[in-house]
Design a protein around this nucleic acid. Structure first.
Lengths: 151, 151
DNA sequence: CGAAAATAATTCGTATACGAAATGAAAAAC
DNA sequence: GTTTTTCATTTCGTATACGAATTATTTTCG
């Protein structure tokens, strides 16, 4: 397996897992996606999170999060308002319908992914460490190459 | 860290790696995406692959692959024709421009991801094994629940 | 053979995803 | 205090991604 072949195999593996886990087949019968559920949980736990904070928590782009929030609002699962203090910023809170959906979906996901939840601690640590190593390697190389005016 | 929190952390990690690796920021200056490069390589190595075979190799959906191939054709990187023997099936071959692009992009990716290419064999095996374990866990649970008429 | 079933690819509708550009509002600079 | 800059969010254009429906062709069945 040469270098390029490795890169293919590894990227394919990440892609596969990403889709299996993140999208969750759109949490089938509940008509909500994985990331929508995580956003719903975050908003339930901490109302008044801004969109940017949400995006950072989920490690996604602002524009992506804007769309996700938009769909949650359209589905009546959260309410989106401008902050009084800073009218650029959003505040969000979950609706009763959203709270219901959150509970159901969380239950569903916990059952569906119980194997994941029950993984050994050391395996999880190992997995996350390997992932971080890869990220470090990629980012080091990327930065060294293109971006020399750091700060 | 409870079960749900774990699920969040792990899915986020996969999402992050997927994007870092798979999309490759669209292989910056070359104006081609990661999966386009892999498809280009596959077609170069084995002309006359059908679309379905390509989709299976990349573990993606037929409709997704259809779009990817479509964009490669529009960019003049591959030629798409109907097979003589079975006019439902496609055959594809790379164009001279596509071959050029493939070489450049492959070189770029190998440099950009040399850290990945040089990972220790045992780390790669370990990573892929952990991934497979997770997939198995998820799929076992999923199948038991919804899909009992297996074969 | 001709109708029905199966197969390969495409199209459609929707969601995620990113970066760039646009918008609107607050803060900083002058 | 007005102009400039910064900041938060949205919009736009494009790519990936999936499942369902559609189309075109081949195979199978009666």
């Amino acid at each position: 397996m040469d270098g390029f072949e490795r890169i293919k195999v590894i990227t394919r593996s990440f892609r596969e897992l990403y889709h299996a886990l993140w999208l969750l087949g759109q949490v089938e019968e509940l008509d909500i996606t994985g990331i929508q559920l995580f956003v719903l949980s975050a908003v339930a736990k901490e109302p008044n999170l801004s969109l940017g904070e949400l995006a950072e928590m989920m490690q996604t782009n602002n524009s992506t999060m804007s769309g996700i929030v938009d769909r949650l609002v359209k589905a009546d699962l959260i309410v989106r308002e401008r902050s009084e203090k800073d009218r650029r910023t959003l505040t969000m809170r979950i609706t009763p319908l959203g709270e219901e959906k959150r509970k159901q979906a969380k239950k569903y996901v916990q059952e569906r992914l119980s194997g994941l939840a029950n993984m050994k601690d050391e395996d999880i640590s190992l997995l996350l460490k390997l992932h971080q190593d890869i990220l470090d390697k990629i980012h080091l190389e990327g930065d060294g190459k293109k971006d020399d005016e750091s700060k």
